[in-house]
Amino acid sequence: MRWLHPDDFADPGHQQIYRALGTLHHRGEPIDQLTVLWETQRRGALADGVLDAKRVRRICDPLLGGAAEHFGEQVVQASLVRTATLVSRQVGALANRDALAPGQLISYVLHALGPLDEVRRRLRTARGAEPEPRPSLGPPGAPAPSARSDAARVRSRLAGTTLSAASTAVPHRASTDRRTRRGPK
C-alpha cells in the first residue's frame, strides 16, 4: 500500500499510527498492539496528547481486522474529497481576485489543481487501474507536450545560431545619424 500517505488521514492520531506502522514495517519488526503502542510512544504522540494508549490498542485490535487495501482505498477516497474541497476554495478565491490577468489566473489554478491530480493518481493506483495518459494541450493528433517542448527548444537553438551567424556576417557600423545616436544633448 505504497500509494497511501500519512496526510491522507484526517485524524492526526491516525497519521501517527500510520507512520509508526510504516516505521515498524521498514525495520522488519513485528507489528502488533504492543509494538505499535511502543513506537507511537517513542515518537512522542502519547506525550503531546494526540493519542492515548487505550485508543492505540483499540485501533490496532486484531479482532477488528479487515482488508487493509479496502480501508486504505476508503481513506484515499476521503482524502480526495477533502483535497477537492480545499482546491475548490482556492480556485474560488483566485477567481475573485480582480488583479489577476486571465493568463495568471489559469497558471495559478493549474498549480492549485496539482495536489488533486496527485491524490486522483494514487486512488487509481489503489484501485488497480492503469494510469491515465496525460492530456495533450494541443489539437487532436498533435504530439505530446514533451515532444512539442523538445521541438521548441531545438527551434530556439537553431534560431539563436542563425541570428548569431547573421550578426557575425555583417560588420557592425557606428551610426553617425543624429536621430539614432545616444548620449548627452
Score class of each variant (00 low, 15 high):
Met1Lys: 04
Pro6Ser: 15
Pro6Tyr: 13
Asp7Pro: 08
Asp7Thr: 05
Asp8Ala: 04
Ala10Ser: 13
Asp11Phe: 05
Pro12Met: 03
His14Met: 12
Thr23Tyr: 08
Leu24His: 01
His25Gln: 14
His25Asp: 13
Arg27His: 08
Glu29Leu: 12
Ile31Tyr: 02
Gln33Cys: 00
Gln33Lys: 10
Trp38Leu: 11
Glu39Cys: 04
Glu39Thr: 01
Gln41Asn: 14
Arg43Phe: 00
Arg43His: 07
Leu46Cys: 05
Ala47Val: 10
Ala47Trp: 01
Asp48Ile: 11
Val56Arg: 14
Arg57Val: 14
Arg58Asn: 09
Asp61Cys: 12
Pro62Ala: 11
Leu63Tyr: 09
Leu63Ser: 14
Ala67Gly: 07
His70Asn: 08
His70Val: 15
Gly72Tyr: 04
Gln77Thr: 14
Val81Asn: 09
Arg82Pro: 06
Thr83Phe: 02
Thr85Lys: 12
Val87Lys: 01
Ser88Lys: 11
Arg89Cys: 03
Gln90His: 05
Val91Ile: 15
Gly92Asn: 08
Gly92Cys: 02
Ala93Glu: 14
Ala93Tyr: 02
Asn96Ile: 02
Arg97Gly: 02
Asp98Lys: 00
Asp98Gly: 09
Leu100Asp: 12
Ala101Met: 04
Pro102Leu: 10
Gly103Thr: 03
Gln104Gly: 13
Ser107Ala: 15
Val109Thr: 15
His111Arg: 15
Gly114His: 08
Gly114Thr: 15
Glu118Ser: 11
Val119Ile: 13
Arg120Ile: 00
Arg122Lys: 07
Leu123Glu: 09
Leu123Val: 01
Ala129Leu: 14
Ala129Lys: 12
Glu130Met: 07
Pro135Lys: 02
Pro139Phe: 03
Asp150Gln: 11
Ala151Gln: 13
Ala151Cys: 03
Ala152Cys: 00
Arg155Lys: 09
Ser156Thr: 07
Gly160Val: 05
Thr162Glu: 12
Leu163Thr: 13
Ala165Trp: 02
Thr168Leu: 12
Thr168Gly: 05
Ala169Lys: 11
Val170Asn: 08
Pro171Glu: 07
Ala174Ile: 15
Arg179Trp: 05
Arg181Trp: 13
Arg181Met: 11
